[in-house]
Design a protein around this nucleic acid. Structure first.
Length: 222
DNA sequence: GCGACAG
DNA sequence: ATCTTGTCGC
């Protein structure tokens, strides 16, 4: 699939911040998303022990069966340090390369990290959604910004992630008695519908199937 | 000013 | 993210 080139990859923190400010208005948080979602892609990046090389992976699954229909891997190098709030500039360059190798076009992208629940309301999921021009959901494994209360122990239970008077996402329990995942909107997807999709994509483990496959693919290959 | 801080 | 063993629970 094709990915829009809306900017060069910045090398400094001020440049990266400027890119976020410029792209933020392009993220759509009101669109309900596609009526039918058949193919969902999970994206993840694994780092080599040397801290310089990395592997970006994309796994596309058919929602109805959760079978993997396509896998793509790309090896690259770290181009940006890990800075909370600028995480996208570390992983997106290689993830975009991987997406461009994809033969199929997913209906929805699941990102490892936050979307709008971000210090400047433009996390990796929003960023990738704008560049790929596709609906995206941010799925994080640990809390970042905002406050939340632990949801009830049953699968499907959730509680809002809030920052003062705004709701930034949800702590969603995808498995009974297992700590929740942190969901936030990326692009062209409602928070409510996002959680709906995520529960469908998480029949057995804590992490949604597309992201589990991408994780394994990025570090073990296949 | 200090600490915290997606992966 | 990555470096790492055993162990509790469904």
């Amino acid at each position: 699939m094709r990915v829009r080139r809306l900017h060069d990859w910045p090398a400094t923190i001020p440049e990266a911040r400027a890119v976020q400010e410029r792209l933020r208005p392009l993220a759509d948080l009101t669109d309900l998303g596609p009526r039918d979602v058949e193919l969902v892609a999970g994206l993840d990046v694994a780092y080599a022990a040397d801290g310089d090389h990395l592997t970006a992976a994309v796994a596309v699954l058919r929602v109805s069966t959760l079978e993997v229909v396509e896998r793509v891997t790309v090896s690259g190098r770290v181009r940006f340090p890990y800075v909370p709030g600028l995480f996208a500039f570390r992983e997106l360059p290689s993830l975009v390369d991987a997406l461009e190798k994809l033969q199929t076009t997913p209906d929805l992208l699941l990102c490892d990290g936050y979307g709008v629940a971000h210090p400047h309301r433009f996390g990796l999921a929003c960023h990738l959604g704008v560049l790929a021009d596709l609906p995206t959901i941010g799925v994080a494994k640990t809390a970042f910004i905002g406050a939340y209360e632990m949801p009830a122990p049953s699968r499907g239970a959730w509680s809002p992630i809030r920052d003062d008077d705004e709701t930034l996402g949800r702590a969603l329990r995808t498995r009974q008695n297992v700590k929740p995942i942190f969901v936030s909107q990326g692009h062209r997807m409602t928070l409510d519908i996002a959680c709906h999709h995520l529960l469908t994509l998480t029949p057995k483990y804590r992490i949604p199937a597309p992201l589990r496959h991408a994780d394994h693919l990025s570090r073990h290959g296949v």
